[in-house]
């Protein structure tokens, strides 16, 4: 399966979607936010961001999948203490990757 690229109307100007995600990374989303997330989460496994749980249910470290079979390679400067925090960080990285512009938000 290939997930479509960003559809018309979802672009770097849609800061409302970023705010919606930051406020509620898990749970019901608007249609446009879900569409954006499907594109982000549908990225191929190679170099995809994942989390390595470095302290049981307390600390997670950003990693990316490399090799075959894919294994997480730690990006050890990024440590999170909640999954919400981690989701937001990766959302910003993917936003930049997909829209070409950094996510600058208050």
């Amino acid at each position: 399966m290939t997930v479509r690229q960003l559809p018309p109307g979802i672009d770097a100007t849609r800061l409302d979607l970023a705010r919606e995600f930051r406020a509620r990374p898990f749970g019901a989303h608007s249609g446009d936010l879900q569409h954006l997330l499907n594109v982000m989460r549908g990225l191929p496994i190679a170099n995809k961001h994942v989390l390595v749980m470095t302290e049981p249910h307390r600390q997670w470290t950003l990693a990316e999948m490399t090799g075959q079979p894919p294994l997480p390679r730690l990006l050890s400067n990024q440590v999170f203490h909640s999954l919400e925090e981690a989701e937001w960080h990766v959302f910003k990285l993917r936003w930049r990757e997909l829209t070409g512009a950094p996510l600058e938000i208050d």
Binding site: M1, V3, P25, F26, L37, N38, R41, G42, P44, I45, K48, H49, V50, L51, V52, M53, T54, P56, W60, A63, M65, P69, P70, L71, P72, L83, A86, E87, V90
Partner: peptide, 27 residues
């Protein structure tokens, strides 16, 4: 951990720990 669609249907980032990583290292 390695499927292309996992994060889509999970609706969250994939999380692994040291023991999970034994599996790709030991096919």
């Amino acid at each position: 951990f390695t499927g292309d669609h996992v994060e889509l249907y999970q609706g969250r980032l994939t999380v692994m720990d040291e023991t999970d990583m034994l599996l790709p290292r030991h096919p």
